[in-house]
Design a protein around this nucleic acid. Structure first.
Lengths: 149, 149
DNA sequence: TAACAGTGTTAGTGTAATCTAATTTTGGTG
DNA sequence: CACCAAAATTAGATTACACTAACACTGTTA
């Protein structure tokens, strides 16, 4: 029933979660707007997600996540958050860009790599001063030849 | 003629370059073996790559890269190398795993992010001792709670 | 040189994802 | 409360990519 989502369906599912958090009800046209596709494409995606048991879907009704959908999203958004954090705070990419890039990467990056990024971030935050006295972030910024503000 | 390759075609093109470097001639069945698909799928991909002017393709003949194909590969393999290097030497993933993961990521990671990884690696290699006396790689390994050998 | 094994291609099928255009449903309003 | 515009779905086409099965070519070898 849930043998891994395609990149496309992952994107739809995340958009549903985001809109649900922001506006409560999730409508087809908002999803289309959010993702940048036609409403008819959204409908097809919703049908697939419903088949997989991730959303509650009835035609002409707003959509909600099922328990399984919520679980899937929890995992996905944790992954997204780690990648975004890493891009922004290790590679010093601008926040907006880090977010977009995380959207692209989260669909192909393995759990193993993501957990390594997490460990790396945790370590730097706990032990930054031992490695390089002062703000560790400045070291990274220096590595990228960027100003820290 | 070359408005960006799909992930799939990028994979085929890289496999062609690798086999060409390793064995000279590039045959359909070796490509199929290398990529893990059927020979007929390779044929279709070769036709597409030929349409885009990236390979010299005549039915029943071995394939070679065109000038444009070689250029495209140069770019792709530089990107691949940087990602692999970063995964192996910053995130301390095992070499084999880093290579596979780089294959997955190189198709969705932006040039901008890749160049940041490059800057990061360069900086660490030039200035590692200032940041953390001794081998900087041990610091990273420590961050990931792994043994360095 | 005739035949065969292996290599390569074509034809036909299926799935996923997208689009446009037509149709159906909903919900608010005159 | 009947109607209309907006919203949503369906129908039908297209593109990309993979597969199986059938067919074509090639080069080696008996």
């Amino acid at each position: 029933m849930n043998p891994k989502l395609s990149m496309s369906l992952e994107t739809y599912l995340e958009a549903i979660a985001e809109l649900q958090a922001r506006h409560g009800a999730v409508r087809t046209s908002d999803l289309a707007e959010c993702i940048g596709c036609k409403r008819s494409s959204v409908t097809i995606a919703l049908q697939r997600l419903a088949e997989k048991g991730l959303i509650n879907y009835q035609v002409y009704r707003p959509v909600t996540l099922t328990e399984a959908g919520t679980q899937a999203i929890t995992r996905l958004s944790r992954f997204h958050g780690i990648i975004e954090d890493f891009l922004e705070n290790v590679l010093a990419l601008p926040p907006d860009y880090a977010r977009e890039e995380a959207c692209r990467l989260e669909h192909s990056m393995s759990k193993r790599t993501i957990e390594r990024m997490k460990n790396f971030l945790d370590f730097i935050r706990e032990n930054g001063d031992e490695i390089a006295p002062g703000k560790i972030s400045e070291v990274f910024a220096a590595s990228l030849k960027i100003k820290t503000d």
